[in-house]
Amino acid sequence: MADVGVFEYRGTESLLQRYDARHKLPALVAVAAGLLRSPPLGLLAMSGVVACAALSSRVPLAGILRQLRGFSAILVLALVAEAFSVPGARIAPGLPATAQGVESGALLAWRLGALIVAGALFAGSTSVSMVRSAVAWYLRPFPFVPAGRIATMLSLTVTFIPLVFDTYRGIHEAALSRGMALRRNPLRSARIVAVPLLIRCFSRTDAVVSAMEARCYVDERTVASLRSRPEDWAITLGVAGVTSASLFWLR
């Protein structure tokens, strides 16, 4: 199971943490687009952007990579799926994997790995209150859009992801202790965990709604003030430039 602790806010004082969330959100979207859509040379450049972000985050990269080991299964799965599904010349007689498939799979794994690191850096350097303020700021000009409510929903979703995983772990361990591993049908095993997980999530949602109401919840709450500094603009323009180059010129 992947460790979602890697997506937890760390609050380390750094350039990436100070980077205005109103800039950081579109920058993350641009980086994601660049990582997923760029040709190999562009992907190299976008990976450089992610590496710069990691260096500026002052979070030990080795620590992030260690926590990301759990995601390696997803990357290997992507590589294997591509290797066996992309048509081309077989890499060995009797083995249905193709050279083109392996190349395509390696690229896909690289893209996904870099994207997970980018997401972890964003989550680790941006508090939910900053994300909420930025989302509310973007949505406020649109009439009839409940900006405050959407921003709160988004922030609650981010807050509760680690809790859902903790709950999953508890239910999974309880099922294992009662011999779930002896079952051969993976679908039935998944159902054994999924049903109580859903029930727990729904009942917790009810409890959270009560707790929020008890603390006077309103859609339009006090939001953290955001400030854009010249270096924020410089970073955003830099990311936009590298992303454009990666997508359209670096072929």
Partner: peptide
């Protein structure tokens, strides 16, 4: 509430404690 976990809505201790005052629309 009995279930303290269900009462937590913030990503950090500070954000959680600030939730109520933010709903009262007090200044930052």
């Amino acid at each position: 509430f009995q279930d303290a976990d269900a009462q937590i809505v913030g990503q950090t201790v500070r954000e959680d404690v600030a939730f109520g005052p933010e709903n009262l629309r007090l200044s930052e």
